[in-house]
Nucleic acid binder design. Structure first.
Ligand code: ZN
Ligand code: ZN
Ligand code: ZN
Ligand code: ZN
Lengths: 167, 167
DNA sequence: ATAAAATTTGCAACATTATAACAGTTGCCA
DNA sequence: TGGCAACTGTTATAATGTTGCAAATTTTAT
């Protein structure tokens, strides 16, 4: 039985966010990318909710800050964060989630719980290999992979199995 | 070198559409599902364009038919077709494409050319196996897989490689 | 230091994609 | 014939994402 991955376990989430931000600042410094206040705040908001956040959710939070913001502000910040591999967009949810391992822009594999909304990003070399093999067989040159797996996370799975239906 | 798959080869597309429609009618008859005129027409429109069609593209075509249609008409037809496995929604494109092998609702793997827009649906057991294995390792119960691979199809790949840049 | 250039942000309007709510219609069966 | 269920039409609205331009900020060059 493997240890459960982060979002499925209780953990010090503030620390979790701090670490992610520190890592992001470091990554941007190395790449000479400018992690401006708006961008950093957007990244922080996304990390604070361990669940994917829609652009308009981010916008609402910014407004709650007292920040006068409009959609383009958010989308531009999100574009930047995506370009620098700091967040991923989940196409099937129209939402964004933080990336554990920033650095170069990359495509992740996501386990999305339809019950609690938590998302876990996997690095799955086997899957990537299988995809590349299949694409190669069709002489297709892969540039970007969108792989989003919806279902039930361990916690929600056991909840729904154990309890028949709490009326 | 495998033979190139259907959308990448020249073929009699009218026949292609006819066959798809016949197959759809047959599938609906077996499942006692009602392939009404609107639904069939929407399916036909989607097949006629071998590229994914947005809901509002479909709407425009229906209007061109003289059919008084509004968004809900199209979205309802698309829902029906999806439920019965006759079309797939491509999340990364917000668009719909016909399914080769109707029957039960299923999730496909798609090769999407960013240049010509063609889409090829794969049945890739190896990929599915790798995904299930990775999910199982996280005790995650898979319900739906969204796998969309963007890149260059064989034709567009060779075009862009051969010609430096036609000014 | 100062001016020019590049980047980032604010802002208004707009475009695209999707859904809600309710009324009318059609086909089927008691 | 009347009632029921499924389907469709219609209007309005919600949710998501983009364009274009001007102001502000930061960087670079003089
Ligand atoms: Zn990542
Ligand atoms: Zn869950
Ligand atoms: Zn299919
Ligand atoms: Zn192509």
């Amino acid at each position: 039985m493997p240890a459960r991955a982060l979002p499925y376990r209780p953990h010090n989430h503030d620390l979790c966010v701090d670490q992610a931000l520190a890592q992001a600042r470091e990554s941007c410094r190395r790449n000479e990318a400018r992690l401006t206040p708006v961008r950093e705040r957007v990244l922080e908001l996304i990390w604070q909710s361990h669940k994917p956040l829609g652009a308009y959710d981010v916008l609402a939070q910014l407004s709650a800050d007292g920040h006068k913001a409009a959609p383009p502000t958010v989308y531009r910040a999100l574009d930047f964060l995506q370009q620098h591999g700091l967040v991923h967009r989940i196409a099937s949810l129209n939402a964004f989630t933080g990336c554990d391992h920033p650095g170069q822009h990359h495509c992740g594999t996501f386990l999305i719980c339809r019950s609690c909304g938590n998302v876990l990003e996997l690095a799955a070399p086997n899957i990537t290999a299988a995809i590349n093999q299949a694409a190669t067989a069709e002489t297709f040159q892969v540039e970007q992979i969108t792989l989003e797996i919806a279902g039930l996370c361990p916690r929600c799975e056991s909840d729904s199995t154990d309890q028949p239906t709490p009326s």
